[in-house]
Design a protein around this nucleic acid. Structure first.
Lengths: 196, 196
DNA sequence: ATAAATTATGAATACTTATTCAAAAATAAT
DNA sequence: ATTATTTTTGAATAAGTATTCATAATTTAT
């Protein structure tokens, strides 16, 4: 049996991330992706059902990795709720440090994808959010977080804030360091803007 | 000279908002918009240069209105920096209360548009952000806000958070009231999650 | 009432682009 | 070396859809 030499499947998905980041999903043409990946147009359809399928797989990979990390945080009973949220935020930032293009695709196409991915069987994105909400509830139960906070609203609040910052950072990586952003986010979440 | 009876220009832009909200910009067809607006396909091209032009005008209208409001806040010297930010947040939420569809279009297409609108002459969006940043700097200068906060990061942080909450709210208006969301956002920005 | 000007129409056009598939190339098995 | 199997290819196909424009309808002016 013939054994594949290169890894076209991987080449294609990496090319797609580059292309989607640069032009956006809807403006990326299959032929663009093929050129970046150095394969023929037809080859893409050997490894993926269609264009949408590529995007779905990009996201599923990402959320699977993040879900793996958050379950590790959850298992670590020595961490306080504050530390859990800090670590969770750190993991999200870290996931994008190695791949700014992925960050851009994430912030731009995530919403479009939610409509499709909700039908997927292993929805790592949903699972991830559920664990995140548990952390907030723990903090409130343990009387560490203010009980005035609605955990659902907070979850959406914080993810939106991070997403927007990542987009900004990914677009202009020179202007400000991700470490600085991470620091500010952690501070703002803990203390808000008012001076103590 | 002939005088227009109805207002097709307005009908079209309102139909476009509905359609973009429901299907997304890229999946909305000109013929869809024409049907909703009760006009012929050709009429759309009488009032707008092309499909993109409609989207650009939707956003320009929105940011123009918000810019008008924020300049009024700026002029009101009796307000403290905290009150200014509170009012600013309130205005953003209010702008979408009357038109949930506009909120959906805003959160979904804003990013795609930034690439185009940056070339526009009256960029109300940019002007708006600049005034917002002034409020933060005032607060830090007057020693009311923590000086650990980077005003640029905060601006992006807070707008991202609001955008994400609006999207959530617009998608599921029954689950949670906008008033409740607004309340939580104000609280979080002031105090963070930690109990005092 | 007629002409002039304006506004509205939608079938036809032109263009883009995702997807297919028959054939070729590359590799493995005999 | 020959055959079988797998992988790759890209021109051709198919489908969709933004935009145009000649014509019609409507309103205003004379």
């Amino acid at each position: 049996m013939r054994h594949k030499e290169g890894n076209k499947e991987k080449d294609i998905i990496e090319a797609a991330i580059k292309c989607f980041a640069k032009k956006g999903y809807h403006h990326s043409k299959i032929i663009d992706i093929a050129k970046i990946a150095n394969v023929a147009v037809g080859s893409i359809y050997v490894y993926y059902n269609n264009k949408e399928d590529i995007l779905i797989k990009i996201f599923n990979n990402l959320w699977e990795r993040l879900y793996f990390k958050i379950t590790n945080i959850e298992k670590n009973s020595r961490l306080t709720p504050v530390e859990k949220i800090d670590t969770m935020i750190e993991d999200i930032f870290d996931a994008f440090i190695e791949n700014p293009n992925l960050a851009i695709v994430f912030v731009n196409e995530q919403q479009y994808l939610l409509k499709l991915s909700s039908t997927l069987s292993n929805n790592f994105h949903k699972k991830y959010l559920d664990v995140g909400e548990i952390f907030i509830k723990e903090g409130i139960q343990q009387n560490i977080f203010s009980s005035e906070i609605n955990s659902n609203i907070f979850r959406i609040f914080i993810l939106g804030a991070i997403r927007n910052l990542l987009r900004y950072w990914a677009d202009t990586p020179v202007k400000i360091s991700l470490a600085k952003i991470k620091e500010n986010v952690t501070y703002l979440i803990r203390n808000g803007i008012l001076k103590k």
